[in-house]
Design a binder for these strands. Structure first.
Lengths: 206, 206
DNA sequence: AGATTTACGGTACTGAACGTACCCTAATTG
DNA sequence: CAATTAGGGTACGTTCAGTACCGTAAATCT
């Protein structure tokens, strides 16, 4: 049997299986997600786009949401936190990036998925890598540097405290439904909450 | 034509209209909501339960979610914030009540609605009276008293700061999907975040 | 009171999707 | 080269949202 020459489209010449097919499906789902969002992603469209049918999808993922989450994960990219030499500008910059992300089409998808997952803990856990716990690491990095510079109190190196700025920002989106948070809000979060908090009960204001 | 005698059920004696019917529908919807939750609330069931049909519903509310939110609002009750004489115990108590609410069946409904509303700002606004902005008032009350007692700095009397404990708690539910927050988490929020923050940059730790 | 307008109630239907069942056939495995 | 596994095609079964009509009771007008 010869190799499978390919057109630009995903429609398979030969019958794909296993990882190759799974990959095509996830790619198709990710595309649907970016083009139409989760609410308009249908299993039939994903299947057609991947050049297969719903059977192949349901054989791998138990339902629409699970598939969508799996597809979303390959959209996510990792970025390095800033290191400007000042806590305030690091925090503000990181917050601005987060704001841009949540405001972006991808952020909208994340919000949809978060909403659709409702209270389903296992599913939420998969999204948290993007939106929650794993996202704590950069904050700890930023804060760790600031502590080394004496800009923050060591007691602040606590996940709940370190990530509070992001939590407040996410709150703007999730609860207020804002398409994007104004820069004033970010500044307010930094100056009224974050910095006072991490400078700590011991360290005097710089 | 004589009156039409009827059974004990809600099925109308005579043909109801206007406010009377609207009321019956909202009551039926609220009942469905508490018994089955939003995801299993169907327009047909609500209509049947109210002794009417979908027409009457769609004539008043454009869709299922809007009706559900309207129905939810009559489930919500208002409570007075505690006044124990100490900021820490006021905050902790209020947070515990909030935790109980979010953990309760009603809280589950609120979470479902919040999720279903997604980014629909106008709808979210209606729920915020229960979960967000209007809920800020009690926090300001508690904090105001504490400031009068000298337990907190006046600068803390700022909505974003005053409500931060509740925001963090809500975050536990919305993002982590926890059915209920452990008491340790509440205490941590109060001691690691709330109190340090509102005691402020000027006031020394008591 | 009688005529007119408004709004309920009954019922049927469309359309969108999810999820499932079956059966044939291509790929892989032994 | 047989046996097994996994894809592909296709057709359903179901559940609901939302819509469309139409006859009739209740309110409103004259």
């Amino acid at each position: 049997m010869p190799e499978r020459p390919r057109g630009s489209s995903d429609a398979g010449q030969t019958r794909r299986r296993g990882a190759a097919l799974e990959d095509a499906i996830l790619r198709a789902a990710a595309d649907e997600l970016t083009e139409a969002g989760f609410s308009r992603l249908t299993m039939d469209k994903v299947a057609t786009r991947a050049g297969t049918n719903k059977n192949a999808l349901y054989r791998r993922w138990p339902n629409r949401l699970t598939l969508a989450i799996a597809a979303y994960r390959r959209l996510a990219t990792t970025v390095q936190p800033p290191d400007t030499g000042s806590l305030r500008s690091d925090v503000l910059e990181w917050l601005r990036r987060a704001n841009r992300y949540w405001s972006s089409p991808q952020g909208a998808i994340l919000r949809e998925l978060l909403a659709a997952a409702g209270g389903a803990t296992e599913l939420l856990a998969q999204l948290q890598e993007q939106s929650g716990d794993a996202a704590a690491a950069p904050w700890l990095t930023i804060l760790g540097r600031a502590i080394a510079r004496g800009e923050a109190s060591p007691e602040a190196l606590h996940p709940r405290v370190a990530t509070i700025a992001m939590t407040l920002l996410r709150n703007e989106f999730v609860v207020r439904g804002a398409p994007s948070a104004p820069d004033e809000v970010l500044i307010e979060i930094v100056d009224e909450v974050y910095l006072p908090l991490v400078r700590g009960r011991s360290a005097p204001p710089a």
